[in-house]
């Protein structure tokens, strides 16, 4: 990726946007201005942004509850995210989605509530791409906690059996909700499970945006080339607690501090400064601009109308009305 300064700068910009979106969400919650609980991905931005970086608009993304990283990475507009989070009528889901983001234009088919339900749904979109002969890739982004759902196995099995264009991107952030990964796993890694289905896999440093991007680019290329699925596991650390309001009494503070020194945004910033891609002054301006963009999107969403009774019964079926 050397020489691709523009890509690196764009990824850096997206990581900051993700961080600022989530910090703003947290602040609005604490101020009592919004009601939607947040599950933040602080510290994981190089994974969420790195895995979506190599995707094309027509590629299909399934994301997670943890923050907005992969959705911003796939190109969702901050304004649409706030409209959805605030349940407004003009959101992409017309106020129906809430935390469950969906954006058809960017091929984000939705976000499930029961963790891991979409493992197989993602296999289905990849199956359709193969049957239709498109060169779309489905990227299934998932946390290590969810990989213990039973459906992970038949999903990987079907993907390999039918040689589908799908990349399984496992974000191992050391926590499974309110527990440490070691309470859920007898192993340190998730990725070797892929070997059971003859799916090639790789484990990479999730704090380094160049590495997350490059590993995903290779995996996506593999899948797009008709070679079947690929699994990449990214090792990172959830610097936020499970949900806004979770005091994180179970978190080892020394460990948090240690990982904090490898904050992916800080690492990327240092790299950009060192390589002369970005100056201190440009960085300041960039950050101010991004915060202004977030604030503007928040304001616009606050001012937008709520859905009404006419929306309550809409879109249950493709025809008019609802069946009681």
């Amino acid at each position: 990726m050397n020489g691709q300064n523009d890509i690196l700068e764009a990824l850096y910009r997206r990581m900051i946007l993700v961080r600022f979106m989530e910090e703003t969400h947290d602040r609005l919650l604490k101020e009592g201005k919004i009601q939607l609980m947040g599950h933040f991905g602080t510290g994981q931005e190089a994974v969420a942004v790195g895995v979506t970086g190599p995707l094309r608009q027509e590629d299909i993304l399934f994301g997670t509850h943890r923050g907005v990283g992969e959705f911003i990475g796939k190109g969702m507009a901050p304004k649409d995210i706030w409209l959805e989070y605030m349940g407004k009528k003009d959101s992409p889901c017309h106020g129906k989605g809430g935390l469950h983001l969906c954006d058809r234009e960017r091929n984000i088919p939705g976000l499930v509530a029961t963790l891991g339900s979409d493992f197989s749904i993602a296999v289905g979109t990849a199956l359709a791409s193969k049957m239709k002969g498109t060169d779309q890739v489905t990227l299934y982004f998932v946390g290590e906690g969810t990989c213990n759902q039973a459906d992970a196995h038949p999903s990987m099995c079907m993907a390999a059996l039918w040689k589908l264009p799908i990349v399984f991107s496992v974000c191992t952030n050391q926590f499974c909700e309110l527990s440490y990964m070691c309470d859920h796993y007898p192993t340190g890694d998730v990725a070797p499970r892929a070997a059971a289905y003859d799916i090639p896999f790789e484990i990479v440093d999730g704090q380094d945006i160049e590495k997350t991007y490059e590993a995903t680019r290779k995996a996506v290329e593999h899948a797009r080339g008709g070679n079947g699925p690929y699994l990449v596991e990214y090792k990172t650390y959830r610097m936020a607690t499970h949900f806004s309001g979770d005091p994180g009494t179970y978190v080892n503070r020394d460990e948090l501090e240690e990982w904090g020194r490898r904050d992916p945004i800080v690492l990327c910033r240092e790299m950009l400064l060192e390589r002369g891609i970005l100056s201190e002054e440009e960085d300041r301006k960039l950050r101010d601009g991004i915060q202004a963009e977030v604030d503007e999107a928040v304001e616009a969403a606050f001012a937008a109308p709520d859905p009404g009774i006419e929306d309550l019964f809409k879109d249950v079926y493709s025809g008019e009305g609802v069946i009681q």
Partner: peptide
């Protein structure tokens, strides 16, 4: 794998 094949069928259906 009934739940997974149902999910796979759903994914194919939402892709048209």
């Amino acid at each position: 794998a009934e739940n997974a094949i149902t999910g796979a069928a759903m994914g194919a259906a939402m892709s048209g």
